[in-house]
């Protein structure tokens, strides 16, 4: 009986050691998991006004080759205070981060947001080109 008990304990100990020595998955400077994924694109784009209602007059056109997002907004939209929303490929992140209202009013100098892949090796800068209805 004691023999079986010892064997079981030893097996559990070995299993614990193996589990305990498992290498941690890497995380980036934001504490986000770095994965194996290399996909890097914007899937969808939304632009909200201060009332959190869309200011788009039609669906944004995302060109994943030219790396542009063309969005047409309603007449009179206050582009100094808008909230862009990006839907990214799995595990991607955006740089710079969007933490509040954004000023997109300088139409001659479109803002650029860089999408970074899950493995953090691919970086694609998307330009947001806004025009009024």
């Amino acid at each position: 009986m004691a023999k079986y008990y010892k064997i079981t304990c030893s097996l559990l100990l070995i299993a614990g050691l193996i589990g305990g020595c498992k290498k941690d998955l890497p995380v980036d400077e934001d504490g986000l998991l770095i994965t194996q994924r290399a996909e890097c694109y914007v899937g969808n784009f939304e632009l909200l006004g201060t009332d959190f209602v869309t200011v788009r007059s039609k669906t944004a056109v995302i060109d994943t080759t030219a790396l542009t997002i063309n969005v047409e907004v309603f007449f009179g939209t206050d582009l100094k205070n808008v909230y862009p929303q990006f839907s990214l490929a799995t595990d991607c992140k955006l740089d710079p981060k969007i933490v509040g209202k954004v000023d997109l009013s300088d139409l001659s100098n479109p803002k650029t947001y860089t999408v970074i892949s899950g493995n953090r090796l691919v970086k694609k800068p998307y330009k947001i080109i806004v025009k009024y209805q």
């Binding site: 201060t50 309603f74 007449f75 009179g76 206050d78 100094k80 205070n81 209202k101 000023d103």
Partner: peptide
């Protein structure tokens, strides 16, 4: 501070 001087719609 950054609000416009009009509201449409």
């Amino acid at each position: 501070q950054t609000a416009p001087n009009y509201a449409l719609g």
